[in-house]
Amino acid sequence: MSQMTRRLAFVVFASVVSVSPVLAQVDFSGEWAPRMWEDQPERVPGPDLGDYLGIPINDAARLRAEAWDASIQTLPEWQCRPHSADYIWRGPSQLRISKEVDPVSRDVVAFHAEWLRSVDRAIYLDGRPHPPADALHTWAGFSTAKWDGDILTVTVTHLKEGYLRRKGLPRSDQAILTEHWIRNGDYLTIVSIVNDPVYLTEPFIRTTDYELNLNQQIPPYPCGVVQEIDRKEGDVPHYLPGTNPYTKEFAIRHGLPVEATRGGAATMYPDFKEKLKTLPPAKQDGK
């Protein structure tokens, strides 16, 4: 075999290896600690009321967010609700990923992710189909994944209704979530892309980082439902349209135009900076 042939053979072999999913697998299992390098104010204290900057929401989402009253969290039905699969990456909780291995083939057939206050989230790699559309939706949704080289691409369907931000900005149960799991040594980056035909006009893309932490434990998080407030059965706290007094707080505190804080796809793009210059900053009502 000539030298050139040997080189070409190597190239061909390398190409073959690169299309083989088994050899491209990366091990994501381990204990991961959150790193709040992005959007820390949203992730720990929680987002400000009325801050929808850079989120491609529609009018319906905006109105729902403005009708949201924090007291709804005291309803028995919502006291133990965990974050959904798309939002839980943004919580401040540590993360544990374990892997499920077929004892015969030794293929990794699933990853399982869990956080402090979560349900088990299984991500299947065994080629199983998603359930029928009318099967039960869950907080974790139904996740299948495939390898794109070293990147694990996850498709999540069957999500229960959740939220884009945990102060009332809704995400519908029709949404489909795509994730890309990327490991660089001891760092894990999750790219999350929410497509919601109900409340978004464009995909909502976030990245979130974790760092390997060998000493970490996730303690149990039991949750009990109690009667927090005396109220009549069926009482659902909410603001009637136009009566929420807090929607301008964020804009006023930061001297931003109210229109900018209302969000929408336009606020995601650099062109919006020019428009910002033409808008007056928010003021207290009556001033």
Binding site: E77, C80, T138, K160
Partner: peptide, 28 residues
């Protein structure tokens, strides 16, 4: 059953299989 999902299952007149969290959203 756990974290407000599962447990009692509810079959709607039309649409998908549900649990109490789904009904709670609808009730809201």
């Amino acid at each position: 059953e756990f974290r407000t999902e599962g447990g009692t299952l509810v079959v709607p007149g039309h649409g998908r299989l549900s649990d109490s969290a789904d009904v709670a959203y609808y009730r809201d």
